[in-house]
Simulated scan of single mutants.
Amino acid sequence: MTIRVVVADDQELVRSGFAMILDAQEGIEVVAEAGDGAAAVAAVRELAPDVALLDIRMPVLDGIEACRTISAESSCRTVMLTTFDSDEYVYEALHAGASGFLLKDVRRDDLVHAVRVVAAGESLLAPSVARRLIEEYTAATARPAGGRALSAERLEVLTARERETLLHLGWGLSNAEIAAALTVSEHTVKSHVGNVLAKLGLRDRIQAVICAYETGLIEAGAVRESPRTLG
């Protein structure tokens, strides 16, 4: 099946270069190029691509806001492009729904790999890395407890075992590690993970890490505890 891609960057040479690289790959088709975030959103709405590559800094609508709109309105997965290696940008991009984050000096093979990985439903950033980044950022920004208390209401749709699963996802554990912690099979864990993502409207495991922190299920700076049933 062909992976359909939209490339958005306000620098024409960068945009056309990425599009040329991707179009030359078997199984990948660039269906549109866009010079700003609003045009990228319009292209996604019209063409329903599988992946959108979005520059973070674009006119009219920046990449993060474009990502937020695309993630809310479609199943298109987004990869953010930037010249900045900044935790703040990475966090905001992931929070907006991005599935990956690449620097613009990315190697050709890594760019192609990123598109294939994201199109397959995976993330470019390991959950364990996301957990460190999210913990540091949420601690630094000192998010108000009241806001978290309201967000915690989201978790009421989960069963106790699903809350445990989300807790372990928040720690960045793999399915095998969660299975060992909960003394269940990996098949059972996969089912729990699917239920958690579906009930909370999360796109992937990294979104689950963000959710675990923002709802207060895990506090920044907390030490991982032994498995226990959450009431």
Rank of each mutant, 00 (worst) to 15 (best):
T2P: 15
V7S: 01
V7D: 03
R15V: 00
A19I: 05
A19G: 04
I21H: 00
L22G: 01
D23W: 11
D23H: 09
G27R: 03
G27E: 03
I28D: 01
I28H: 01
A34M: 08
D36L: 06
G37D: 13
A38L: 15
A39H: 14
A40F: 09
V41W: 14
V41Y: 13
A42K: 13
R45W: 08
P49T: 05
V51M: 07
M58Y: 11
M58A: 01
P59S: 02
P59D: 04
G63V: 12
G63S: 07
E65W: 12
T69H: 09
T69S: 05
S71T: 15
C76W: 10
R77K: 09
M80W: 11
M80H: 02
T82M: 04
T82F: 11
T83P: 05
F84S: 03
F84H: 09
S86D: 10
S86W: 15
Y89H: 06
V90C: 03
Y91K: 01
Y91M: 02
Y91C: 02
Y91V: 03
A93E: 12
H95R: 08
A96N: 03
D105L: 00
D105N: 01
R108N: 00
D109G: 00
D110L: 04
L111K: 00
H113N: 01
V115I: 08
R116E: 00
V117W: 00
V118D: 00
G121D: 06
S123L: 05
S123I: 05
A126K: 07
P127V: 08
V129F: 09
A130C: 09
A130V: 12
R132T: 10
L133A: 01
E136D: 11
E136A: 13
Y137G: 03
T141P: 06
T141G: 04
A142C: 12
A142N: 12
R148C: 12
A149S: 15
L158C: 04
L158P: 04
R161G: 07
E162P: 03
E162F: 03
R163L: 14
E164Y: 05
W171Y: 11
G172S: 04
G172N: 06
S174W: 01
S174P: 05
A181H: 12
L182K: 05
T183F: 15
T183R: 14
V184E: 10
S185A: 05
E186W: 07
T188L: 07
T188N: 04
K190P: 10
H192G: 04
H192P: 08
V193N: 02
N195E: 10
V196G: 06
V196D: 05
V196T: 13
L197M: 05
A198L: 10
G201V: 15
L202K: 04
I206G: 02
A208R: 04
V209E: 06
T215K: 02
G216A: 08
L217P: 09
L217T: 09
E219A: 13
E219W: 15
A220L: 05
G221M: 03
R224C: 10
R224E: 14
P227V: 08
R228D: 06
R228E: 08
G231H: 12
